[in-house]
Amino acid sequence: MGGYFTTVATMIGIYALVASGLNIIVGFAGQISLGHAAFFGIGAYSTALLCTKLGLSFWWSLPLATLITGLIGALLGIPSLRVKDDFLAITTIGINFIVRSIFLYVPFFGGALGIGGIPTPTLLDTRLRGEYYLTLVLVLLALTTWFVHRFARSWTGLATEAMREEETAAGAMGISHVRFKILAFTIGSAMAGLGGVLYAHFVNFISPDDFGFPVSIMLLSMVVLGGMGKIWGPILGAIVLGSLPEVFRPLVQYRMLLYGAALLLVIRYQPQGILGEGSLLRRLFPRGRR
């Protein structure tokens, strides 16, 4: 495998993980979030600080940074209890800009220069680079996908979907919207945090612009394109949107145009996403629910 392919595949794996987290919030709980990159960034900055300032190893920092991001996600999920739909979209955009500004303007977070020297993890005296790191990302992606699968098939998952479909009726069924919204934000943010950790240790250097609003848009596009509320949706979305700019690379300045056109075509002709209910793929292969 070439280094270029490995790098692209690793980034796709990381984005698939982060987009799967967003899918919990947007797809399963039905809470629009346009600020998911903030949690991606919080995970990356947490591990960067834990490793460079406290000298923690990657293997300690990974669960810690994931946990920290999950807790911050729970806190920043509180607005979803007060505002809905368009207003929640704007609030989450705001969260994204605030978090990015904190990284940019608080000297502790390294300012515009970001944080460098984030160590590459080692396992059994082997530095995890290239294919090794890709394997690590894919193993963690598989684990989180298994987790999402279990979540979707648990009563908690069912209750979360019920809340998405009809919040008032769900309340009449004893489902506390506070509990399940905050839970969705916690799980979704923790997964973004995990993705952030993997990103930081992959590129070894992070700066605020890696976690700006355009990244949030890209993540949401992955979820929508693949199919909201479908376990494999965001993963397929990440593969498609992650590889399209590479496939179109020879076209230089036209590649973003084609990227946008591909996105528009899906939204026009497959509004439920490539893996959504009633999509072309589902009609061609009717078996294999979810």
């Binding site: 098939r153 648990s154 908690t156 069912l158 979907e161 019920a162 769900a170 004893g174």
Partner: peptide, 29 residues
């Protein structure tokens, strides 16, 4: 709950009896 099957609509209601605590609500239902 329009996106769900008729049976799952009712399953949601069973939750308060059988999956009241967080831990009980995690296994496959």
């Amino acid at each position: 709950f329009a996106g769900m099957t008729v049976l799952n609509n009712v399953m949601v209601g069973l939750g308060m009896q059988r999956y009241s605590s967080f831990l009980k609500s995690c296994p496959v239902f």
